[in-house]
Amino acid sequence: MQGQSADPVARPRRTRRPRGHAVRLRHHRQPPVLLNRRPIGHPPLPFSGEHAPPDLLRGAAVAPVETAADSRTPCAASDLLDRVGSWGPTATPAGMFHLVPVQVERDLCLVGRWMNDPAVAAFWELAGPWSMTARHLRRQLADDGRSVPCLGVLEGRPMSYWEIYRADLDPLACHYPARPHDTGIHLLIGGDADRGRGLGSRLLRAVADLVLDRRPACARVVAEPDLRNTASIATFLSAGFRFLAEADLPTKRAALMVRDRVPCDLS
């Protein structure tokens, strides 16, 4: 979500950006602009028409469907994040919202289509064949549970993609004073109809609340939007995050945003 892009697309770019003048954070007061595995005990989501073609999943460009990650339950794959798949739905001003861990066979077509949206591709850089998205998802699912990719399902409708990750175990921890169990968020809003109307900040606030409620050892939720992405920064600020610092990451200059369990006294 940059300039007139998407409601928040909080994901690092993979190319080095010029160091030019940083946008002054006073611009964050602008309103935000356009930006698996089935959880235990919940029925399959009705994603009819969103299944990836079997021949694509079997293609040489992607790993076989049956991997160690695909055979694990969501809870077993998410122990480092207190079992994201079992967190259940949460009430938001926009309706009931549920983080549902990704299942590649079920969700690849949907997530791949979102990644090919120009407003998303500018930040995630996963546009192209679905095999690129499949590799990205499987890398996370094959990990030890320090990052859990999820669909954001609002009132039964999948409409966003989230990555909940252990920021203290991520390379990001080298760029800020990380604390044990710091939890990071990457997100994108999937469709044009859901962008540019404040939905991103409402869901982001709800997810941050959910992280802090379900992860008692976690004292902070963190994010690292591009410093020039004033709309994304505004969304995080509207969701109760505060600006911590600027950071030179390998792929961008970022605004480190923090949501504290106990509000910080800024006076």
Score class of each variant (00 low, 15 high):
56 L>V: 15
105 E>N: 06
30 Q>T: 11
77 A>K: 05
120 V>K: 01
111 V>K: 04
49 G>C: 06
185 I>L: 15
120 V>E: 05
73 T>V: 13
89 P>M: 01
150 C>V: 10
164 I>T: 08
179 R>H: 13
210 L>E: 13
19 R>I: 12
109 C>Q: 14
90 T>C: 10
30 Q>N: 12
94 A>Y: 01
192 D>E: 14
144 D>W: 00
150 C>R: 04
223 A>W: 03
260 D>E: 15
148 V>L: 11
195 R>I: 03
193 A>L: 09
61 A>H: 15
70 D>N: 11
120 V>A: 15
46 P>T: 09
102 V>C: 10
104 V>E: 15
148 V>D: 06
104 V>M: 09
173 A>K: 08
83 R>T: 11
241 F>W: 04
18 P>V: 07
105 E>L: 06
147 S>F: 01
154 L>R: 03
163 E>F: 01
39 P>W: 03
81 L>E: 12
92 T>R: 07
189 I>R: 00
168 D>T: 10
76 A>M: 05
241 F>I: 03
31 P>W: 11
180 P>D: 11
60 A>H: 15
265 D>Q: 13
46 P>E: 13
250 P>H: 07
87 W>E: 08
64 P>H: 12
221 V>Q: 00
6 A>T: 11
32 P>I: 05
118 P>V: 02
18 P>R: 08
153 V>K: 05
156 G>E: 12
245 A>S: 14
72 R>T: 06
66 E>A: 09
162 W>K: 00
109 C>A: 15
153 V>Q: 09
194 D>C: 06
244 L>A: 12
32 P>K: 00
194 D>V: 06
150 C>S: 12
6 A>D: 14
232 S>D: 11
244 L>E: 14
75 C>G: 07
259 R>A: 07
150 C>I: 10
239 A>Y: 02
93 P>E: 04
135 R>S: 15
96 M>F: 13
160 S>I: 01
256 L>V: 15
209 D>W: 00
129 P>C: 09
93 P>R: 00
132 M>V: 15
128 G>Y: 12
123 F>C: 10
145 G>I: 04
26 R>I: 13
68 A>P: 08
209 D>E: 13
264 C>N: 08
149 P>R: 01
236 F>E: 02
235 T>I: 05
149 P>H: 04
190 G>V: 00
22 A>M: 15
64 P>F: 10
258 V>K: 00
160 S>R: 01
